[in-house]
Simulated scan of single mutants.
Amino acid sequence: MSGVSPKTVSRALNDEPHVSARVRQLVKDAAAKLDYHPNLTAQSLIARRSFLIGLTYERPSPSYVVDLQNGALDRMHNGRYRLVVLPFNHASERPEELGKLLLRTGLDGVLLAPPACDQIELLDLLDRQGLPYARITPQKDLARGIVITMDEVAAGQAVASHVLDMGHSRVGIILGDPAHAASLARLEGYRRAFAEHGKILDENLIVTGDFTYAVGYDAALDLLRRDPAPTAILAQNDDMAAAALAAARALGLAVPDDLSIAGFDDSEVSRTAWPQLTTVHQPVSAMAWDAADRLIARLDATPDGPTLDQRHEHAHALLVRGSTAPPPAHHD
């Protein structure tokens, strides 16, 4: 129907190079008229490839997981690659076990979200076995593999500077899971902001959470029951910031009149909370899309193809909303 050879049909349907846009569309139009759909299993057997790309992550907030998956799925929409989601807990303690899981799954490649993206033992295993990977927001050994980054230190510095600029000096901090290198990077950003403003970061006001609402709630209560209590709380994700908002209300505190709260991620909960949360926009979907795109480009690369860019940094943005204001002493 399209008037070209079977090989050209194959190349067009698989979005391979060396096919003009006109011929590619001609073939796809013919396939649509014939209601023809390539059999992915048969393709896998012939090519001796699975056309499966894994995505592994560990206990992040639900909205972060959704953004990760949606970004990767958007890139694979209507393509021959399919996404296999592989959540795995305690990757920092069991990197070899995670690596064996990824290898057993028969993947063509894998997207590594935190904290797996920073496990050097895991990267060593994948390199030895020749399994291509793309790393989403790693903090270590950035010369390895495809690397999609955001400046976590600068993002942490921006949100801390925001509350310091408004006059806060007694600032509580709820860290994320210490196994995530991004948590330490954001803390470094807070420290830089305090140093830049000539203020002292009270180490006794730094408590550890794990990016979950429940632990964030308990951590916020701990901070707010201290004497004197902080006038602002920086939580390292929006789930914990929303938990801090609930804890403040449980103690009869008004946000932002009595207490300012800022989160991180710009997840849906930051927009549905009241007041809406000041937060750092982290382009999770865009980074997952980018990681999947570059990984697929590597998997489909030909010897005479263009050189692929292995690293790309995405920008963050501070979003100031209703949950932050000057401390009580600054109000009229």
Results as ranks from 00 to 15, higher is better:
D118I: 06
D108Q: 12
H77C: 12
Y133W: 10
S63D: 15
Y64I: 10
L68Y: 09
N89V: 07
G145T: 04
H77Q: 14
L126S: 02
D74Q: 14
L111E: 02
R144Q: 10
T137G: 10
L73F: 08
A160T: 13
S63I: 11
A160C: 13
K140H: 13
A72R: 03
L103D: 08
V159N: 01
P178N: 12
A155T: 06
C117M: 00
N78W: 06
Q157P: 05
Q119C: 05
F88C: 05
D165V: 15
L175M: 14
D74E: 12
R135M: 01
V159A: 02
V159P: 00
A113W: 02
D177C: 06
L103C: 09
Q129A: 14
D108F: 03
L86S: 12
V66S: 14
P87E: 04
V65K: 04
D124S: 04
A155R: 00
L73P: 10
L125M: 15
T149L: 11
P138G: 03
G172K: 07
D141P: 11
L126F: 08
P87N: 04
L123Y: 01
P114K: 01
R104G: 07
V163I: 09
I120H: 12
E97V: 10
S169T: 14
P87K: 14
L112V: 01
I174R: 00
G109V: 08
D118F: 06
I173L: 10
L86N: 07
R104A: 12
L86Q: 10
A72V: 10
T149S: 14
G99R: 02
E152G: 06
V147F: 09
V163N: 05
D177I: 09
G172T: 00
R128C: 06
L86T: 14
Q157C: 11
A91V: 13
D74P: 03
I173T: 05
Q119N: 09
A113E: 02
L101C: 12
H90G: 09
V147N: 04
G176E: 06
G99Q: 00
R80T: 14
V171A: 07
P114N: 06
N70Q: 13
